[in-house]
Amino acid sequence: MRMLRDVLWNLFKGRATVMYPEERGSPPDNFRGRLGFNRDECIGCGLCHRVCPASAIEMENDGRGARPVFHIERCIYCYLCIEVCPTKAIKPGKEYAVVTSRKSDLVVR
């Protein structure tokens, strides 16, 4: 019975949930989402590959030298690579819905 007051009050308050697929709240500025990569700024030092805790970064030779390839399906969003990148070639992003039916969508190069 003691809950009755809260329950009645909730009838007149707006809903607390978000109708997710239609309505999407925007994450805060600090949010760690899917990262981006600017290949032109990369110097191929390989630091990101060495620090990645999830082994989500592989090095691939593209003719100019070794360049990282990011596998988002393995990424744990710790942003260690962004922290160590000397040229800031790896960019933070805010995208959080990374579900896809094609694995190639999850490779950032």
Partner: peptide, 23 residues
């Protein structure tokens, strides 16, 4: 109903965590 209400309020703390830490 208590379960729902507590989880609704817990969400506010998680939003603070998200803003402060990034997740």
């Amino acid at each position: 109903s208590l379960f729902m209400l507590v989880f609704r309020d817990r969400e506010k703390v998680l939003d603070l965590m998200e803003e402060l830490t990034g997740n």
